Amino acid sequence: MSTSSEPLPFVPSSSIALAPSGMLRTAELLLRNPSAVLAQVQAGGAELRELPLRLALCALAGFGAFGFLLGFTRSPLAGLAAAPKLMLVGLGSLAVCLPALHVYGRLLGARLTALQAVCEALVALGTTGLTLLGLCPVWLVFANIVNHPPTGYFHVMLGSLVFLGLAALRGIAVLVGALRLQGRTVLHLLAWTALYGMVGMQMAWVVRPFVGTPGSPTAAFRPLESSAFDAATTLLRSNLDSLDGRPPSSSNDETETFQSEESL
C-alpha cells in the first residue's frame, strides 16, 4: 500500500529566525541602532503609521515595570497602583508637550510633519522606557540596600529620581546623537527637553503617591500642596541631613511638612 503526499514548501530557517514581530524589531533597533529608527522616520512611508504605537508600547513597558518596583518597596498593592501612574506621567507629559516640540522645530527650520515629530519624540521616550527596564534589576539591589528605617524612605525617593533622570538623559542623548549624525539642528529638542522635564515633575506631583510616606495611611492620591520643585528641595535636604547623621530635615516641622507634601 503506497501513499502519496505533496511536498511541503521549503521555508529557510534563517527567515524564521529573522522575522520577529514589528514590536520586537522596533525594540531591538532602539537598543542596538536607534539611528535606523530615525532614518525610517525621516524616510516616511506606510510603516510610519504603525511606529508610534510600537514606540509607545516600548515606553509603557519600561515605565510600568519600574513604577511597579518603585511602589513594591512598600507593598505589592502600592506597586500595582504606581505602575499605571508612572506610565501616565511618561506618556501624558509627552502628549502635553508635543505641540511645543512641533512649533519649536518649525521655528528653527525643521522640515517634519506632525507625525514625524511625534515619532522622534517617542524614539527618545521609548529609549527611556527600555533603559528603565534594563535598570530594574539594579533598582531591586539598590532598594534592598537603602530601604531601611528611619532614613530608607528618603534614600528610595531620591534614588528613584536619579534612576528616572539617568534613563531620560539616555533617551535624549540617543535622539540628539542621531539627529547630529543627520546634520540636523537639535536646539529645539534641547529647549523642549527642559519643558518636558518640568511638566513631567509636576505631573508626577499631581498623581502622587507612588510609594507613600511610612506610617501614613495608604491613599490613591494626595491633595495638591506646594509644588514638585519645593518637595524636591526638601527631599534633597532630608537626604543630606541623614548622611550627616541627623534626623531627616532640619526640624520636626519640616519633617511633618515633607510627609504631607510627599514628592513620590
Rank of each mutant, 00 (worst) to 15 (best):
L55S: 02
A56M: 15
L57P: 02
L60R: 06
G62Y: 00
G62F: 01
A65K: 05
F66A: 04
G67S: 04
L69K: 00
L70I: 02
L70G: 00
G71I: 09
R74A: 14
S75T: 13
P76K: 09
L77T: 15
A78S: 15
G79P: 06
G79Q: 06
G79A: 11
A81D: 11
A81F: 15
A83M: 12
A83N: 07
A83P: 03
P84G: 07
K85Y: 14
K85F: 12
L88M: 13
V89P: 05
G90Y: 10
S93Y: 07
A95Y: 05
V96C: 06
V96A: 12
V96M: 11
C97R: 04
C97D: 03
L98D: 04
A100N: 04
L101D: 01
L101I: 04
H102D: 12
L107V: 14
L108P: 01
G109P: 07
G109S: 02
G109Q: 04
A110D: 15
L112P: 01
L112S: 13
L112V: 03
A117C: 12
V118L: 15
V118G: 03
C119A: 14
C119W: 06
L122V: 04
L122K: 03
L122P: 02
L125R: 14
L125A: 14
L125W: 09
T127W: 08
T127N: 11
T127F: 08
T127P: 06
T128I: 00
G129E: 00
G129W: 06
L130N: 05
T131M: 15
L133T: 09
G134W: 14
C136V: 15
V138I: 13
W139H: 08
W139P: 13
V141T: 11
F142D: 01
N144H: 15
I145P: 11
N147R: 02
H148E: 08
P150L: 07
M157A: 15
L158H: 03
S160P: 01
L161W: 13
V162H: 03
F163Y: 06
F163T: 06
L164E: 07
A167F: 11
A168M: 07
A168R: 15
A168T: 10
A168C: 12
R170Y: 15
G171Q: 09
G171R: 04
A173G: 11
A173P: 12
V174H: 04
L175I: 10
V176E: 02
G177Q: 10
R180H: 09
R180D: 05
L181T: 04
L181H: 12
L181F: 07
L181S: 11
L181P: 01
Q182R: 14
R184H: 06
R184D: 00
R184Y: 02
T185F: 10
V186L: 03
V186G: 00
L187Y: 11
L187F: 08
H188E: 03
